[in-house]
Simulated scan of single mutants.
Amino acid sequence: MRNAPHHASDDPEVVRALVREHPWTTIVSNGPDGLVASHYPVLLDDSEELVALTHVGRPDEELHGLGAGAEVLLVFQGRHGYVSPSWYAPGASRAPTWNFTAVHAHGVPEVLDAEENLAVLTRLVAHFEQHVEDPLYLDQEWGRRAARGTVGLRIPIDRFTAKVKMSQDKDAQSVQNVIHALRSPGPYAHPDLAEDMERARATGLGYR
């Protein structure tokens, strides 16, 4: 990602928060036939270190060349949206832009054995099913059969690049105007993005 100090963060908690809220990731690797991208849900391990737990469906493990000790890139995307310069205070920048949160995380995948894979799949299902009215958790006998079509992965994150671009380089009035515009009716209304801007401002992330 572009180097922009106002928007960069080296805080692992920023990564944790983004993965918790937006656990759908893009896995990118340089496989045997070139660059490959796949999309899967991810949970973080409970350890103090940043460790991603996920799986791929067969034969994605062959397309990515997993198990060969090669690094993969995990791309996480948070809420994002267009920001019009017409919302800025008088005299501010006239350049349109896009506010967003994104993390690029790098690590070498460790392929899980059958029982470890089943445990990760069980946890994934429980994580998402808990929010529905009548959750259907993973039956272990059925899960063992289904798990044969997947490859479980544990990916310790060796390094990451995190960007939280929420108008930190703009004056206070312009920031407030953008928040108001995102909360108002219109083609670019995005109240959730406005909440992210408020959170970034409250935590001082990148603000001068």
Rank of each mutant, 00 (worst) to 15 (best):
S29Y: 06
G34I: 10
A37C: 13
G67T: 07
H106V: 04
L18V: 07
G107W: 03
H104K: 11
R208F: 07
R20H: 13
M1A: 08
A119L: 04
V120A: 08
Y137F: 15
F128C: 03
L193G: 02
A37N: 12
V111G: 05
S47A: 14
A17M: 07
H190P: 05
V178R: 11
R199N: 09
A105I: 00
Y88L: 14
V51C: 10
R79Q: 08
A119N: 05
R94L: 14
R20Q: 12
V72R: 01
H22A: 09
S184G: 07
E48F: 01
R183I: 02
E141S: 14
D171T: 08
P41Q: 10
T161C: 01
P156A: 09
V175A: 10
P191H: 06
D158P: 00
N117A: 12
A52D: 01
N3G: 00
P96R: 12
V15P: 02
E110G: 05
L121T: 08
T26G: 02
Y188N: 11
S86E: 15
D60R: 00
G34K: 13
E71Y: 06
W142A: 14
T150P: 02
L74F: 12
A172K: 12
A147Q: 09
Q176A: 15
A95N: 14
E62D: 11
D139R: 08
E129K: 07
M1D: 02
V164M: 06
D60S: 13
E110A: 12
L193N: 06
A4I: 14
A89N: 13
I179S: 08
D134L: 13
Y82V: 08
N99M: 05
N177G: 09
P32Y: 00
L66G: 05
P23D: 04
D33Q: 15
N117K: 15
